[in-house]
Design a protein around this nucleic acid. Structure first.
Lengths: 148, 148
DNA sequence: GCCTCTCCCATTGACGCCCATATGGTCCCA
DNA sequence: TGGGACCATATGGGCGTCAATGGGAGAGGC
């Protein structure tokens, strides 16, 4: 439907239902299907208050990045804390929804709605307002609020 | 109509119908056809409250720029937030119309009419009044309002 | 036994694909 | 040169399909 474009693009906001589930946008599910991704790795972004979601390769890339810096640096320490201590694995239900756990809520501030944001090789979960603020800040060359 | 076209030029305002569709001006469609562009990359502009529309090469240009810096750097993260999170692929229907989604409306303020503005290698979608104001401001050497 | 998660089915509203109409312009020909 | 056929564009709308969402009921863990 969105053509032969195999990457995560755009942003869309969906509601969380009474059971704490939220539908992943169809265009994102199409990319997951195309990539044969069934197991979703969810990690905390290094900069923004958002959860990054992708296939198993996403974890690999983060670990490579950690390995590339001085392993005793505060930066490597901090990244490991997020990647290893903060990463979880999830899967979608038959309708393409995922559970919004406390892990996601606490880190992002998400409560009733989720903004899905494409990042090319993965996508992210944001609190709607936080996303808009971060985007506006990015346009002005700033970064917006850091997590925690 | 023959040969000379090649670029997106001039501007035109069309109405949005009851189903939220709007006709892309025929002269713009001719350029798209000539360029063999079927998938339209639509990006929320960095400066103006307008959507930029072009072929996949438009996205390629931005991605090259991102690729030129450390992919885990805050700077790459920030650019991706705009280029990937603020961009989407769309396609025209059989009559050469496109859906004016909330993605477009929220960012531009477009509600009932769309002004198409040629920008040589791409074109833009504007709220008519915002376009006139920005043009007037540009004549005086200013930039006009920034996006929300 | 209660609470949580998963699988299944139902609803509704949005979108894609298709065909129809109006309007204005161009070209041809008498 | 004026009339009229013809065409392209912009616009309207029917209808089937699918996505987003809601909710029931069973399986399994604490």
């Amino acid at each position: 439907m969105f053509g032969v474009v195999g990457r995560f693009l755009s942003n869309a906001t969906n509601r969380i239902d009474a059971k704490g589930r939220v539908s992943v946008p169809a265009s994102f599910r199409a990319v997951l299907l195309e990539s044969g991704i069934q197991e979703l790795y969810c990690l905390q972004d290094f900069i923004y208050p958002a959860i990054s979601v992708g296939g198993p390769d996403l974890l690999d890339r983060y670990e490579k990045q950690i390995a590339s810096v001085d392993p005793f640096s505060p930066e490597a320490n901090r990244m490991s804390l997020l990647v290893h201590g903060g990463g979880v694995f999830m899967r979608l239900d038959a309708e393409g929804r995922l559970m919004v756990t406390d892990f996601i809520r606490d880190f992002t501030g998400i409560s009733s709605e989720v903004t899905f944001v494409g990042r090319s090789d993965h996508f992210q979960l944001w609190r709607p307002q936080a996303f808009h603020e971060a985007q506006a800040a990015a346009r002005e060359g700033r970064f917006g609020s850091r997590p925690v």
